[in-house]
Nucleic acid binder design. Structure first.
Lengths: 144, 144
DNA sequence: TTTAAATAAGATAATATTATCCGAAATAAA
DNA sequence: TTTATTTCGGATAATATTATCTTATTTAAA
């Protein structure tokens, strides 16, 4: 569904958020360990998220990644996915047609539209806060 | 959502079906032209579909691909997708966790389950006949 | 000011996916 | 039986994705 980069990006952002509630800045190494991802590859993804202004980075000793506390409830899952994978998951034709709309639909256009709209709504209505709070409370998990 | 191979496979199967209603066997070249796909790559995918007994092939002059007419309404979209991409789209964890279930859910487990179940139901309840008939009637399209 | 720790950035490598090429095998028709 | 046409199967190539490595830059603390 999502690329590996996007999976890592979502998990990393959630992990950073859980720590940002306690104003704790987390390092790349710690993130990669906690979400069980390759360190250097994760670094690239985090840089991407910084450029997209979803997370903040602080260079140098005692640096790391963080998210402004007040921003956590406003960040939607859709923004993270969009920053890394673009919007191809819920836009574009399910069968790869260049033109696919009501006038010129692919064979699965209508059926796909329902599923994809639901996916899009889900991503746009899920915010980082609820995901982070579930991790903090031990209701959900970032690895294994 | 689907791999390129799967997109080509779905479109090819639909095109073969539309012709099989008229007992017309179609060649690889014709299929690739009609669904706008790379010929040699399409050949590999068709071989895969033959091995999975979704389509039939006849070698030699005047050969080509066909589907037994009575089989067309029984073939589900899910079978085609499964033959080419496996079941990873609607099984497995959305964030790539090795273990992800009600006891040990990933942060998006519940939200994903809804979307994925809908996708799975759609694929399992869509049969080749309805897709092929829409192409025959000009209601939907396989290229552009 | 020096040092240690950390992210940034560019180059490179490994793997998976997509795509092509070519010879072998099959088959119907001439 | 020969030929033309077609799928089959293996090898190879191109591209995208995933992953690593190395060096530069930043920054707080000693």
């Amino acid at each position: 569904m999502f690329s590996k980069a996007c999976e890592y990006g979502i998990k990393a952002t959630i992990y950073i958020a859980t720590n940002s509630y306690e104003k704790k800045r987390v390092s790349l190494k710690e993130i990669a360990k906690e979400i069980d991802s390759p360190v250097a590859f994760t670094a690239k993804i985090l840089q991407d998220l910084v450029r997209h202004q979803i997370i903040n980075s602080v260079q140098g000793a005692y640096g790391g990644f963080e998210i402004e506390k007040h921003k956590i409830p406003t960040i939607k899952l859709a923004q993270i996915v969009n920053a890394i994978d673009g919007d191809k998951i819920y836009s574009g034709c399910g069968l790869g047609l260049h033109t696919c709309d009501e006038e010129h639909p692919c064979p699965v256009h209508d059926k796909f539209k329902i599923v994809r709209t639901e996916l899009k709504d889900m991503l746009e209505n899920t915010n980082l806060e609820e995901l982070a709070l579930d991790i903090k409370s031990g209701t959900s998990f970032l690895k294994i």
